[in-house]
Amino acid sequence: MELTPLIPTAPEGFRSGFIGIIGRPNVGKSTLMNHLVGQKIAITSPVAQTTRNRLRGILTTPTTQMIFVDTPGIHKPHHQLGRVLVQNARIAIQAVDLLLFVVDCSVAAGGGDRYIVELLQGTETPIVLGLNKADQQIQDRANPEMAGSAGHDLDQTYATLVEPYSWPLVKFSALTGLGLEELQQILSDRLDPGPYYYPPDLVTDQPERFIMGELIREQILLLTREEVPHSVAVVIDRVEEEPEITRILATICVERDSQKGILIGKGGSMLKTIGSAAREQMQKLIAGKVYLELFVKVQPKWRQSRSRLAELGYRVEEE
């Protein structure tokens, strides 16, 4: 019996490559990748600096395979974890075939955007500027011409910023899907002919355990906001797959006793809410029932220690 290979031979003219998604924190990079691949693989949150590990999302069409590398938001680091995240983002810039620089066009270009433009000046990697959050630009139903003019003025601040480099601009909304077909076409046109790097039906190269941990961390960020900001790491201790249910045990690591108290909540109410919301997302991920048990553990100053960061899965990527 002849076996069908997991990775087929690409047809003539097929294009493929790795596309780095970069930008300031909270401009919608993870939302964009989730929408493009058609499945939730990266967590999103109103809190900036959500993404920590480089996550690959894979979009395969009949003519192209695009492997999106979601990177941490580029910012001035304030602790060892921040330095690791920014270093990983910088390495990703050099390791991809194409860069999609995502900005928030509902506000004018700012210092953070200029910092990234300066950072990109030395790279030979082709760059596309993506104007995200088009749906959030100023709307004035009573005077649509004025609203359109205001939106154009905001867009122009970015066009002026990158004018010396002739980077192509594309405007879209990662939330609604507006303009994403045009974005895909622009990205595809800038990739070289190449093979399938992954099986066509794969949407990420990350193991389920990693995504499970991220889904728990997402609910912590959504439900506690600034009370327990980024001093949280999640470790999946055990996954037991049974015919009717998947049992998952996970530990949430924080830096202070006060944060542990917030996460547990009165009578365990907050931990129960976090667990219930994360369990719902996990059941969508594995398409089956999930039993989730959460524990909270205090590990002082884990973000300042390279060894503790490594134990919790945050390593500087290999160049």
Rank of each mutant, 00 (worst) to 15 (best):
M1K: 15
T4K: 15
T9V: 15
P11M: 12
P11G: 13
F14S: 14
S16D: 14
G23S: 06
G23T: 08
T31M: 11
G38V: 08
I41M: 09
I41N: 04
I41T: 05
A42I: 06
Q49T: 09
T51D: 08
N53L: 08
L55Q: 06
R56T: 05
T61A: 02
T63P: 00
Q65W: 02
I67Y: 04
I67G: 01
H78D: 15
H78G: 14
L81A: 15
G82L: 15
G82C: 15
V84H: 14
A89C: 07
A89D: 03
I93T: 12
A109Y: 03
D113T: 03
R114Q: 14
I116D: 07
L119R: 04
L120N: 09
Q121R: 15
Q121V: 02
T123F: 00
E124L: 11
I127P: 00
N132M: 04
K133F: 04
A134Y: 01
N143R: 03
P144S: 02
H152D: 00
T160W: 01
V162Q: 01
E163G: 01
V170H: 08
V170D: 05
A174W: 04
T176I: 05
E181F: 08
Q185C: 03
L187T: 13
D192G: 01
D205A: 12
Q206L: 08
P207C: 05
M212E: 05
E214H: 11
E218S: 13
E218P: 12
L221E: 02
P229K: 02
V234T: 12
V234P: 04
R238D: 14
R238K: 13
V239Q: 10
E241Y: 02
P243S: 07
P243R: 07
I245G: 02
I248F: 10
T251Y: 01
T251A: 03
C253K: 13
V254S: 02
R256Q: 15
S258M: 03
I264M: 14
K266L: 04
L271G: 06
L285V: 07
V290Y: 06
Y291T: 03
L292K: 03
F295K: 15
V298E: 12
P300H: 11
W302S: 05
S307I: 05
R308Q: 15
E311L: 11
V316D: 01
E318I: 11
E319V: 07
